[in-house]
Simulated assay, not measured.
Amino acid sequence: MAFEDLKKEVNLIISKTQLSAKNRLTEICEALRTSIPYYNWVGFYFANHETQTLHLETYVGTPTDHIIIPFGRGICGQVAVSNENFVVPDVTSQDNYIACGLDVKSEIVIPLFKDGKNIGQIDIDSDSLDPFTKEDEIFLAWVNEQVVTIL
């Protein structure tokens, strides 16, 4: 599915006000994972700035033990500190990588901002090497802009 078509689906999910924010986030994760072949694991982490940790709110894909990640640790933890997108074409090239599964080959993490503060992120793992493009970054930043409206 093209990103433009997927935007319509994300907007439809966002508009389901009868659902909780968490349920809508889960539906967004599922829509992304099933629509984009190289999105094999999709989840949202949210920051606890007091404890300097990220907490997995919802995801779709292979189960993970990484439900709490300290700021600075792994790709997600680094994004919590840098406030910048992080695209990893090959996870084996990263020293500070937390392996979520043996099949994961690449990862993209886009921070989620509310009122100028990094409150979390969308995290996507792929079982393919180097699948993510600038278009993925732009699209996922747009997804986060929609998500923040329900938080």
Rank of each mutant, 00 (worst) to 15 (best):
D115G: 06
D65L: 13
A141W: 09
D115V: 08
I69Y: 05
Q94G: 06
Y39C: 02
L25R: 06
D5N: 15
L56C: 08
Y45P: 01
S93N: 14
K16T: 11
L6I: 04
T51N: 14
G61E: 02
V10G: 08
F3Y: 14
A2L: 09
I98R: 09
V104H: 00
A99G: 14
L19H: 04
P70I: 07
T34Y: 09
H66S: 08
P111D: 11
Y38S: 01
D136L: 11
N144V: 02
E57C: 04
K22D: 12
N96E: 01
I69A: 10
E4L: 12
D125I: 00
K7C: 01
V91S: 03
K134E: 09
A21W: 09
A141R: 14
A47W: 05
G77W: 01
Y59W: 08
L54G: 07
K105W: 03
V79Q: 02
D130H: 14
L54Y: 10
I28A: 08
L54R: 12
K134M: 07
I75A: 06
Y97H: 10
E27Y: 03
S106A: 13
A99C: 13
T26W: 04
I68H: 08
Y45L: 09
H66R: 00
K7H: 02
E107W: 00
E135Q: 15
D130L: 08
N118H: 07
N23H: 11
H55I: 12
I124E: 02
T92C: 09
Y38I: 01
E107I: 06
V10S: 01
E145R: 15
G116L: 01
I75D: 00
L102G: 10
S82H: 07
F3N: 00
E4P: 07
E57W: 06
I108R: 04
L32C: 01
I150K: 07
E107P: 01
G77M: 02
L12G: 15
N118Y: 05
N118R: 05
C29R: 03
I124R: 05
Y38M: 00
I150P: 04
E27Q: 14
A141V: 08
S128M: 15
R24M: 05
L151T: 14
N83S: 14
D103T: 09
F86D: 13
G61S: 06
L54P: 03
